[in-house]
Design a protein around this nucleic acid. Structure first.
Length: 816
RNA sequence: GCCGGGGUGGCGGAACUGGUAGACGCGCCGGAUUCAAAAUCCGGUUUCUUCGGAAGUGGGGGUUCGAUUCCCCCCCUCGGCACCA
């Protein structure tokens, strides 16, 4: 009777071996080729969920694969420990956020260890600890000194009942999640980082990042949204100040039939003072939350201000409107409207009976009806006086030149990207290192007074930050003049912590500098894996921070992540797993039932990494069954005694077939894991090889040697995916050393050579026959053999053969 | 609304560079083993069919000897939209 597969015993045994041997702790070895393999670190919510298991397993497979390739691999883990859930837990259960967070980290670390990930735990980083966040406070003061941070008003969601700022996710259908009050937009002063200073570099470098998916690069390009346009000013009837607008379509300037300003615009306010209807409309405009999706989908509303701008070319009066879709904080807070050639302007004009004027015609002379449909393409100018007949480029330049000459405008490069607002009106985050003094204004906290410690022993009651009610935190002397001053009580956006943690893993204990020489060894990250939902914000902020650190002299690296993979979500019954939907699956329970290897295997087999993965309990069963088959295949083999050396010169046909399958599989899995990151097909290929071994009944010496070659290859190649069972089976095969210290099996090209090859024969593109021919046969001979095939002849019948296409080694298509 | 994905048997998926659609697994059906069950093993499994074949990769059109793959239009669905992380 052979030993049954007992995952619990072999998994704990393998994990003990790795722990005792410190297998995954790495130093900086200049002689070895480093490979830095990283996943987006988790928020310590308390329980590991399947999404975590998926991304960590993907990364662990890559890390272990690279180790088998001989690389010096770093795979660290840490905690994105600041954030709102800790405050919510504190409110609901009365536990201080720090206590809750640290307890969660303890739990989750244990769960990760049970899954057998090859982490270097000596480098663990926890962002809510002062040793970590002091360095982002320090960097902020450096950025302050360089003018890379500044303060300005910006819009937040304001809950008028709770008297607090809400996060977008706390706004549900325009109402506060706790109070149910209608949310308003409100302007408050906040700190900003000048990411727009780096906009061009962040954009241009995307062209030189072959290791990133095109879709992510496209999303970032569109997000940065570089555009070339013209800023020009319109005089306003009865006003001294001109109204400035930005447009990328100066060629449509003669089509302007109205202009629109934001509700907060000075001209709107002025009109409201005299007109109660406008005042009421402006109040109504504030009754909306601050999300762009809300703004873009809400009903476009507007009202005439009873004022006029003067068209700078025609001198005609153009009515001025206030509109709810124009925002004071974006651009100049005013837009020129060309309803003939802009979709939103067209819709607005139709609704409010404003005139639509066609000033562009299609270049190919097609007739269009501008009242029936807006025309957005670039074309040729009409109804534009001296500019008639010009194309887009000529008109753009002529009109831009004209405004530059008369000093009423200028060419301007504009970005959709806005500066990064980093202030949050919350407690559980990094304190912004600023002190406000009545005389000296905002003063950064001097280096020798850092870190500004976040008090951890607090009571979180509900709305608003407890920091405001802590005089011992707030009241400080001004670092510049010594006068009584007040500390900033806002904290950083938690995206700050995740914008540089990847570099800190290299030197988590460095207490004299943010990054030391060890970061030069390990960065950039060679492989970064995380959710597609981070395609823009986290990844763009990280690219920005890397450059800020570079320009501070901390590193020479500009791009933090050389290769990026974005993995899909884990779904159940077609929906994202969530507590609210009640469709969660607890990894801990599954591990208890089947072991970590089964869970890891299912995760890798059920779907390609980039796609959403549909959870299936039956599928997990199937993975478990496969591991049992894998286990007994090796045990049965070793039970029959030690196999001798393989004699390649004396192979029978069936032995050759198995050996061919073995080496085809080595080639396939090497490519799937190393190049394609196609783990599901790699698992399928292992299953095929194991199926072939199970059908193989040759017990001769050479037969057993061929079988042993197949089994040893599978054990090494599956070890990145199911490391525990492979650790045990490698020992079972009689080896003293551990499978993690093996090298990837070598592919023997001569093993897959064939004498005959099967060729598919089609008639008019339809499969009609198969022929077996020598590999090196000439093209016309293949054609002749194909035409001679009985079934092929039947389908050709009396028809004339018009054409024969021969794809060597693959198929013949006969066209009749 | 805008930007980026995805859509293939009953289900998850495969087909990598335009060349055999459905690898591998699940489920189901049949068989073996068993007193019986679980477990395990073997075989079958896109649909329709007059058993010759025919149709078929979200829908419609196009390019090609040949399209899941390339192009155009449309539908559904998921992710992001700057304070969830």
């Amino acid at each position: 009777m052979s030993t049954p597969y007992n995952p619990e015993i072999i998994e704990l045994d393998a994990q003990k071996y790795w722990d005792d041997a410190h297998s995954f702790e790495v130093g900086e070895d200049a002689d070895k080729e480093k490979y830095y393999c990283l996943t987006m670190f988790p928020y310590p919510s308390g329980k590991l969920h399947m999404g975590h298991v998926r991304v960590f397993t993907i990364n662990d497979v890559i890390a272990r694969y690279q180790r088998l390739q001989g690389k010096h691999v770093l795979q660290p883990m840490g905690w994105d420990a600041f954030g709102m859930p800790a405050e919510n837990a504190a409110i609901q259960r009365g536990i201080p956020p720090a206590e809750w967070t640290y307890a969660n980290i303890e739990d989750m670390r244990g769960q990760l260890k049970r899954l057998g990930y090859a982490y270097d735990w000596t480098r663990e980083v926890t962002t809510c600890k002062p040793e970590y966040y002091r360095w982002e406070q320090w960097l902020f003061t450096k950025m302050f000194a360089k003018g890379l941070v500044y303060r300005k008003n910006s819009i937040v969601n304001w809950d008028p009942v709770d008297q607090t700022v809400l996060a977008n996710e706390q706004v549900i259908d325009g109402r506060g999640w706790r109070s149910d009050a209608l949310v308003e937009r409100r302007e408050i002063p906040q700190w900003f980082m000048k990411i727009t200073d780096y906009a061009d570099e962040l954009l241009d470098e995307l062209d030189r990042m072959p290791g990133w998916p095109e879709s992510v690069k496209t999303m970032q390009r569109n997000w940065i949204g570089r555009s070339e346009g013209v800023e020009l000013s319109f005089n306003v009837d009865g006003e001294n100040e001109p109204l400035t607008v930005y447009t990328t379509r100066p060629d449509t300037l003669m089509g302007v039939t109205y202009m629109a300003v934001a509700a907060e615009h000075p001209l709107a306010k002025k009109s409201a003072a005299a007109n109660p209807d406008v005042a009421a409309f402006i109040e109504q405009c504030k009754q909306t939350d601050a999300q762009e999706a809300t703004l873009e989908t809400m009903e476009k509303k507007g009202m005439s201000l009873g004022m006029s701008a003067i068209h700078p070319l025609s001198g005609e009066e153009v009515p001025l409107w206030v509109a709810n879709f124009v925002l004071m904080t974006y651009g100049t807070g005013a837009v020129m409207a060309v309803p003939g050639h802009d979709a939103r302007d067209w819709e607005f004009a139709k609704k409010h009976g404003l005139p639509i004027k066609q000033v562009i015609v299609p270049a190919d002379g097609t007739d269009i009806d501008i009242e029936a449909a807006v025309y957005l393409e670039r074309g040729v100018l009409v109804n534009s006086g001296q500019y008639d007949g010009l194309d887009f480029d000529a008109a753009f330049n002529a009109i831009a030149d004209h405004f530059e000459e008369i000093g009423r405008g200028s060419r301007k490069v504009n970005y959709r990207l806005r500066d990064w607002g980093v202030s949050r009106q919350r407690y559980w985050g990094t304190p912004i290192p600023i002190i406000y003094c009545d005389d000296c204004d905002a003063v950064p906290v001097p280096e020798d007074q850092l870190p500004v410690l976040l008090p951890e022993d607090v009571e979180v009651k509900g709305a608003g930050s407890p920091l405001k009610d802590m005089p011992e935190f707030v009241n400080v002397p001004c670092p510049r003049c010594g006068k009584a001053a007040r500390r900033e009580t806002d904290t950083f956006d938690t995206f700050i912590e995740s914008s540089w943690y990847f570099a800190r893993y290299a030197c988590p204990d460095s207490d004299s500098t943010m990054l030391d020489n060890r970061a030069k060894y390990w960065t950039p990250v060679d492989q970064y894996t995380g959710g597609i939902e981070h395609a823009i914000l986290h990844l763009l902020y990280s690219r920005f921070f890397q450059r800020v650190m570079r320009d501070e002299g901390l590193t020479d690296v500009s791009e933090p992540f050389t290769n990026l993979m974005t993995q899909g979500m884990v779904l159940k019954d077609g929906a994202k797993m969530s507590k609210a939907k009640g469709n969660t699956v607890d990894p801990a329970e599954l591990i208890k039932k089947y072991g970590a290897d089964t869970v890891r295997l299912f995760m890798m087999f059920a779907a390609p990494p980039e796609q959403a993965l549909e959870w299936s309990d039956d599928g997990v069963q199937g993975s478990f069954r496969f591991l049992k088959r894998f286990w007994s295949a090796v045990i049965d083999h070793t039970a029959a005694g030690k196999a001798g050396a393989l004699d390649i010169g004396m192979l029978t046909d069936t032995q050759k077939d198995l050996r061919r399958k073995t080496h085809q599989t080595i080639a396939k899995i090497s490519d799937d894991l190393g190049r394609r990151h196609s783990f599901n097909t790699a698992v399928a290929a292992s299953m095929e090889l194991l199926n072939a071994v199970n059908k193989f009944t040759d017990t001769s010496d050479n037969g057993r040697a061929a079988e042993r070659e197949a089994l040893e290859s599978v054990v090494v190649m599956l070890s990145p995916i199911v490391p525990h069972i492979c650790h045990a089976l490698w020992q079972e095969l009689g080896y003293e050393s551990a499978v993690i210290d093996q090298r990837w099996p070598e592919y023997d090209e001569s093993a897959i050579e064939l004498d005959l090859v099967e060729i598919v024969v089609q008639v008019n593109g339809k499969l009609r026959g198969r022929i077996s021919v020598a590999v090196d046969i000439a093209k016309d001979e293949v054609e002749a053999t194909a035409l001679a095939d009985e079934n092929v002849q039947r389908f050709i019948g009396d028809n004339d053969v018009r054409k024969v296409i021969v794809v060597p080694g693959k198929l013949v298509n006969i066209v009749v």
